[in-house]
């Protein structure tokens, strides 16, 4: 599992993007160029379990963002 530093890096990088709140796994890989994609996805998925990040699905592709960030469907907002 990731260190606090790793998590901070992810949170800050995501927050710095002004116009976008959902990201591909590849965007996370770029934050850790030295690491294997498998490790990065474990880190990201761990942060989802901790409630820091959340998944967004197009059905065919999954994207990841900070929990609660971005434009959600009104009904998703309403019900959660």
């Amino acid at each position: 599992m990731g260190t606090e530093e790793d998590k901070q890096l992810i949170i800050e990088t995501l927050k710095a993007k002004k116009t976008k709140t959902k990201f591909y796994l590849r965007d996370f890989n770029k934050m850790f160029p030295e690491r294997r994609p498998r490790e990065v996805s474990k880190l990201v998925n761990g942060m989802v379990t901790e409630g820091i990040l959340e998944y967004w699905s197009s059905g065919s592709t999954t994207m990841i963002g900070l929990k609660g960030a971005g434009v959600q469907h009104e009904a998703e907002d309403r019900e959660e």
Partner: peptide, 12 residues
């Protein structure tokens, strides 16, 4: 502009 994230629409 309110409903969608423009970079995502572009990337889609």
């Amino acid at each position: 502009g309110n409903m969608c994230e423009i970079p995502l629409a572009v990337a889609a």
